[in-house]
Design a protein around this nucleic acid. Structure first.
Length: 542
RNA sequence: GCCCCCAUCGUCUAGAGGACUAGGACAGCGGCCUUUCAAGCCGUCAACAGGGAUUCGAAUUCCCUUGGGGGCACCA
């Protein structure tokens, strides 16, 4: 009897004969009564159970066929959190067994994404480890050996069917509304004789000889027992014509060899899990535990893909999201701490991350909430950190007319003014460019204040200029003491006057608080811009 | 077509038979603050997919229906 982390019980008996029917799990783990779950939990707590709650060995196994999207990364994060929570190991394994689709540079991007988020790995590329190598393309011998073993045991067979034949067969099946699948023509060929079909294909593949009868079940940590009729499982390919394994064989062999304790992967893998269970059985391996994580969906509730726009995690970095915000947000997609917490430190995440609190409902990626959360994290940054993080974005996106390199001291004076206004680092340059550009262009009509006409506004600007020229020192307080009474003198509301000055000085109707802005800009520049405003308003005709 | 998974506000979620008049967050809306915008604070709108069954009692357990999603490659 083994207990799942959810306190559910599973009894798995591995048959001596691989082809005998795998027993349905007598785990009763499919939605057991609450009471019994509680009882089981107590058993876990009180007795030394054999649950590997400690020192879990989990892996993130990306395929370098593209850049990782938020779903992949969420899977990586959950694995990482589980490893750290249990004091176990987080292993990165590159599943590069598809030579045709491998994208050069993708592996680097994947690893860089992990580093960006702070998901450090204990074993894997660039790190090594006792179970390496960690790239499947460097482990072919293991898979080939396992495949040979299966053929020798009679659990697998060479298949000489050409891709064209398979394609034809598949389209015929689909046209006839039949479930697509291999017709098992080569299943019973004698492996010791040259087959009559061998002429068709010089490089045969190896297929698994799936039992025809019975069913195969496994215990999902989140859902309980999941069972499949064997007749619905194809004689899937385990070794391709080029000698590379398919995912099914490679992941089973490696998860065994690397002593992975829990497979945590996306829900889309559920339907291939019985194939893996069958392989574990045939190879004589003890299978690890399975936890199929709920999917992350696009706004249209379908599986995340390129057409959903921003999905590559690197894109979020480029768009100015903070890694800690990203981690916090992703952690909450499919997992929760309690009924009210949404800003969670990494430390708390690690301390409290358990499988029990992972949900099973697919989640839609909600960009607005991410934006809000990113704003929260930006606001929590120290000024120095904000400057450091914003600098690359300013260097890159401030208009060309701004002289480079930027003056860090000046940036440091500007940043407090937008600190609580920025939702992403990427939008900071637009928020502050008037502090940097030599000329601010704007529509002169904006200089006309609310419920005012051109002449009144012009007059206000002229009087303001007059006052400011004499103002010394040029500080928030002196500005306030000078300008507020001035508004009264002009029989204007403070907002009316300040609005005009704001446009004159920043070119914007929406900007950081006026006096702070003017102080940072400096007296000289303010006067110069107000003069410019007076002349453009003088020339303005509506 | 076949198989599998899932089902609480628009979205992310809390919910372990009585604590539910269903809680929190984002978004929306209204207000306060206020020189604009933010931030902050206060308030408001808003959900147990439907039907049976079990039970004194069901968001919670079971069944069916419906809906959504995923899978069915010499891809992972």
């Amino acid at each position: 009897m083994v207990l799942t982390s959810a306190g559910r019980a599973c009894m798995i008996k591995w048959p001596l004969q691989w082809w005998s029917n795998y027993p349905r799990l007598s785990c009763g783990c499919r939605k057991p009564p609450r009471a019994s779950r509680t009882g089981l939990n107590q058993a876990i707590n009180n007795k030394g159970d054999n649950m590997p709650k400690k020192n879990a060995r989990v892996r993130y196994a990306p395929s370098p066929t593209g850049y990782p999207h938020v779903g992949n990364i969420r899977t990586a994060l959950f694995n990482w959190l589980f490893a750290r929570h249990t004091g176990g190991s987080f292993i990165v394994r590159i599943e590069d067994t598809d030579t045709a689709r491998t994208v050069s540079g993708a592996e680097d991007v994947i690893l860089e994404s992990l580093r960006w988020l702070g998901l450090d790995w204990d074993e894997g590329p660039g790190k090594g480890g006792a179970y390496g190598p960690y790239r499947q393309s460097e482990r072919l011998e293991y898979y080939q050996k396992a495949a040979r073993q299966l053929v020798e045991q009679g659990n697998a067979y060479y298949c000489y069917c050409a891709p064209e034949r398979l394609e034809e067969m598949r389209s015929g099946q689909i046209a006839n509304k039949q479930p697509p699948g291999y017709d098992r023509r080569c299943r019973e060929l004698d492996p010791h004789k040259k087959s009559g079909f061998s002429g068709e294909c010089p490089h045969p593949v190896i297929r698994f000889k799936t039992p025809i009868e019975g069913s195969t079940a496994f215990c999902d940590e989140l859902r309980g027992e999941v069972a499949f009729e064997n007749r619905s499982i194809d004689d899937f390919i385990i070794l391709k014509a080029d000698g590379f394994p398919t995912y099914h064989l490679a992941s089973v062999v490696d998860d065994h060899l690397m002593q992975i304790s829990h497979i945590m992967r996306a829900e889309e893998w559920i339907s291939s899990a019985p194939k893996h269970v069958l392989l574990y059985g045939a190879l004589g391996y003890q299978p690890p535990r399975f936890a199929h994580l709920p999917m992350i969906l696009g706004p249209d509730r379908s599986k995340l893909s390129k057409r959903h726009g921003a999905v590559s995690i690197t894109q979020y970095r480029e768009e100015g999201y903070l890694p800690q915000a990203m981690v916090n947000f992703l952690a909450l997609l499919g997992w929760s701490l309690d009924d009210k917490t949404d800003i969670i430190s990494l430390q708390t995440l690690v301390e409290s991350f358990t499988l029990e609190r992972i949900g099973k409902t697919a989640a839609v990626f909600n960009r607005e909430k991410l934006d809000w959360m990113n704003g929260v994290y930006i606001r929590s940054l120290s000024l120095d950190d904000l400057v450091r993080q914003a600098m690359p974005f300013l260097e890159k996106y401030l208009p060309d007319s701004v002289e480079r390199p930027l003056d860090e001291g000046y940036v440091k004076k500007v940043m407090p003014l937008i600190h609580e206004r920025a939702k992403t680092l990427r939008e900071i340059p637009q928020l502050v460019d008037f502090f940097f550009t030599p000329d601010i262009g704007y529509e002169a009509g904006l200089l006309i204040g609310k419920k005012m006409d051109r002449q009144m506004s012009l007059n206000a600007l002229e009087v303001t200029l007059d006052h400011l020229e004499k103002l010394e020192p040029f500080t928030h307080d002196t500005l306030e003491q000078s300008l507020r009474p001035l508004a009264e003198e002009l029989e204007l509301k403070a907002g009316q006057l300040f609005g005009i000055i704001r446009v004159a000085v920043t070119g914007l109707t929406v900007a950081p608080p006026l006096f702070e802005t003017m102080v940072v800009l400096g007296k000289v520049k303010c006067l110069q811009r107000i003069k410019q405003a007076i002349s453009s308003l003088s020339a303005y005709t509506c």
